[in-house]
Every structure is written in C-alpha cells, then in structure tokens.
Write a protein that binds this DNA or RNA. Structure first.
Lengths: 194, 194
DNA sequence: GCATTCACTCAACAAGTGTTGAGCGAATCG
DNA sequence: CGATTCGCTCAACACTTGTTGAGTGAATGC
C-alpha cells in the first residue's frame, strides 16, 4: 500500500527536510545550546554524522532552521499605511492571533538572549521592523523610539504568552490579549493626538 | 597601607563574596549554560573546586546569584496605590530610570528562555508582580490580564534596552523611554476611562 | 549485468564539562 | 611550641559535546 516508488533524490530531499523540521522543533523548545546534534538526529531517525554532512555544522543548521521564518513582519509591501493600520497589523503579527509563531521564529526568540549569533540575527530583524513601523507612523517626534517600544512590548508579551507561558497570558486567548493591547498601541502610535 | 590584619573567617567570607560577584557578572553576561564553573573561578582568582565546595553545584551557585535580587518590584508595601501611581512606579522599575538592573536580575532575565529552572523562578516572580499590579489597578475588568500585559511589555522593552541592545533603545536615555512608554501604560491602567 | 554513484551508518577522536577526593600549607588554639 | 583546624589547590574522573573519515549497501546509469 505504501509502494510509492520514491526516487533517490526524493528520499534525500525528504530526509534533509525531516532533519530540518526536527531541528526547528528542538531549537524552538530548548534553544541553541541545549539542543544537541544527536538529539536532532534521533528525532529525525538518522545518524548524527548525516546532520553534519548535510548542514555542515550545528551553527549552519541553526541558521537554516531560523532563516526564511524570522519574526514575521506581517506582509510584504504594506508600508504606506497610517498609524491606525500599523497598530492593527502589529496586533495580528507575532502569531498573537492565528495559531502560534512558526518554530523557526520561536527558536530565534528563545536563543536570542544567550546565543550571540541568534542575538545578531534577532537584532537585525527587529531593527528592520522598527524602521518599517517608524516610517508608517509618520514624521512625528520620537517616531523611531515609539516604534521600538511597540516592537519590544509586542515581543515581551509574546514571550510571556508563548515561551515563558506566564499563567495569566497562557490562559488568555490571543484575541483578548490583542484587545487589551490595542489602547496601549494606539497611544504609542499617536493616533489620537500628536 | 594594605596591612589590614584580616582574620581567617573574614578572608573566607570575602572569597565567597568574590566568587558570588563573579558568578553574577558572568551569568548576567552569558547566561547559565554558557557560563562555566571554571570561568567563574578564574574571574574570582580561585580554584574551580573551591566554587563547588562553597556552593555545592553550579545550579546552587546560580540560584544564590539570582536570589535576593529578582526583578525589583519597586518597593515593599506599596500596594494601596491608584492606577496612576502604579504606572509611575512601573516606569521607575526595572532599572529603566536609575542605572541598570542589578546583575542578578539580568542573569535571571538572560537565562529564563533557555534554562527551565530560571524560567520557573522568573515565572514565579512575574506572577507575583502581576498580582500586585492587578490589585493596585482595582476591580476593573481584565485587571489581571492588563497587569500581565504591562509587566511583559516592560520586560520586553528592558530586554531590548539592556540585553539585546537594540540600537534605537540603546541610544535612548531611560527617561525618554519612560516618557514614550507612559501614555501606553496609562491606557493599559485605564486611568482615563473606567 | 556491471561499475559507479551516493545516501547513509559506524566507530572514534579531541575538547570541554561538572564534579570529586586527596593533600598542602598557613593561620589558629591550647 | 606543637597539634589541629581549615581555606584552598592539584590532579583526575566520568561524561557529553561537535565533528570526522572510513566504510556499506542499495539505487542508478550504461
């Protein structure tokens, strides 16, 4: 019944994908340091040596697992929005609404405080987000600072919700959290006065 | 001039304190996993075995380094304050205003996403803070949720400012950050409408 | 059908980890 | 002064880690 005549190249790609998926999951659960190449290999039902052969090093594996799924900015070319739209976009971001964050993003968040390379990656991604938000906020004073505060507040809440699993946030639905956050973000966006 | 006739017990206490200080610094800089007992010993100019002898294990050393300096809540018995006071108290918290966070608190923050024990400790401390803020906010709806959002937003901004060192926040003075954050917190505290 | 490619495994190394027990030497006490 | 306490170090253990090179066996190409 499972006689699918998979070709060699197909099996190879499948194995590589399986390793990458296991890596993403484990990096997301335990972070970079506490995830061992052997554990990834075991989860993918593969020899540790194969992981090295396919990805070069643990570092490279982490980079691959984290790239192409950074902290999602929302969409692609949605820059020319007003402060109000920015707030709504942010609130639907970071997996706060639909489902959770992808494993790659969680892995990056989880390791960013202890792994310098992850920190660099996260810093760069965050800087880009700040620039985007600041631009959308308009030329108001301290636009960039307010954008930075919004992003980091968002990340803080997300961390408490999905990574640290603080009871109060863990038990709250993303919609309720977003609702609680909305007035704060509107104030930061300067949507009423300013 | 340094002929202070230190007694044996004094020297012993001084050594222990030196080890603890080195531990705090290194745990704050690199987190639990990346900090080695040997590195702590070297920084304290002491043999690694002595660290074990004095503190039992690396875990216990970390616990000691982190306890008695958790995420500072502000003060002790300042519970019966109104929403406005709560906001001001929070803004002066977390080292956002005067100087930075103590090393112990930074160590806890840095390790909380990767070390389960640190996560437990942080979760507990945060839960207490949430309860305190929620009580001070009064019996409004979602008081606890809003309190949790405030705390985690605060932590997020602090992380971006002091641990991740995001450019925009790193370059901003604590006062400016607090000023940017104030309207958002007032909105969360429900200080205008009820 | 045969040689070759290649996905994959085995066994091992070298480095670094937390941790331990024996021991040294100076301060302490009678 | 002699015995003893005790702060402290040395050397080593058992283990885990990332990483490697040789090897195996089945799918592939001619």
């Amino acid at each position: 019944m499972s006689d699918t005549p998979t070709t060699r190249a197909e099996r190879r790609r499948a194995t590589e994908a399986r390793i990458l998926a296991s890596a993403r999951t484990l990096f997301a659960e335990r972070g970079f340091d506490r995830t061992t190449v052997r554990a990834v290999a075991a989860a993918a039902e593969v020899d540790p040596a194969l992981v090295m052969q396919y990805f070069g090093s643990k570092r490279d594996l982490f980079t691959r697992a984290v790239q192409a799924a950074p902290i999602p900015a929302g969409a692609d070319g949605s820059e020319a929005a007003g402060p109000d739209a920015v707030v709504e976009q942010l609130l639907t971001t970071m997996g706060l609404k639909l489902g959770g964050l992808p494993d790659g993003a969680v892995a990056l968040l989880r390791s960013m405080l202890t792994d310098p390379a992850a920190a660099d990656h996260a810093r760069g991604t965050i800087a880009k987000q700040i620039a985007g938000i600041a631009a959308a906020l308009g030329p108001g004073p301290d636009a960039e600072l307010r954008a930075a505060v919004m992003i980091m507040a968002m990340i803080g809440v997300t961390v408490g919700h999905q990574l640290l699993e603080v009871d109060t946030l863990r038990d709250a639905s993303p919609d309720r959290i977003a609702a609680a956050l909305r007035p704060a973000f509107r104030a930061l966006a300067g949507t009423t006065d300013g």
